[in-house]
Amino acid sequence: MIEVEDLAVVYGSGASRVEALRGVSFAVGQGESFGLVGESGSGKSTVLRALAGLEADWSGSLRVAGEVQGLRRSKASRRRLQLVFQDPYGSLHPRHTVDRTLAEPLTIHGIGERETRVRQALDAVGLGPAFRFRYPHQLSGGQRQRVAIARALMLEPEILLLDEPTSALDVSVQAEILNLLSRLKAERGLTVILVSHDLAVVAHMCRRLAVMNAGRIVETLSAEQLRAGAAGEPYTAQLLRASAGYDRDAARDLVAYD
């Protein structure tokens, strides 16, 4: 469904030149959930942005559903692939009602049955019709993220790109949103790429994942391997150890990888 080959993204030039991605390749099958983990600056969000067509310039090859993706995207390919961001407060227009937020993609793509589709979308993410005419500030963090997910579903995409979808939420709310995403994924056969710094969240949601560092994929492993602590690379092993919590000895042994 998604094939990424030798993807490279460079920001700036001269002294301020930053290689955000340095040759990233991976493939995700239809209906599969794939995780991207790594620390900040590793390039995991940049991969999503390039896939979504939000990066102005990149090199390499991107194919989605067999279709080669250029710098500009067709309406059809935009419709096929939708993004959910970390911070629903920042990604929802503060002065648009939930109704308007959800209906906007329909207007852009010239799709009718606005009323029915908005109701169905709210229902699908577990928000009642009472939420339709509320503004983002009248919603809790979890409810806002549900609205963001509903918006992503409005165009009935085949692919959902999730960028840290629960890291701004309390753990009890995180569980609700992860359950919602699992259900939607199963019901609609969605192909999912999940970016997260939380290894447990990725292992919960994805069968396979890639560990990224400094713009490269360090290694790709299965959720089972991750759970078993079977890291092939020292970088992954260190990430696993640091993620497990505080450990005085681990602190002493830390190594910098570039």
Binding site: V171, N179, V201, H204
Partner: peptide, 17 residues
């Protein structure tokens, strides 16, 4: 709260809410 956390050592289909 503890139960609602996904854990590497405890795979689960759905998380207790």
């Amino acid at each position: 709260l503890l139960a609602s956390l996904p854990r590497l050592d405890r795979p689960a289909e759905t998380l207790p809410v």
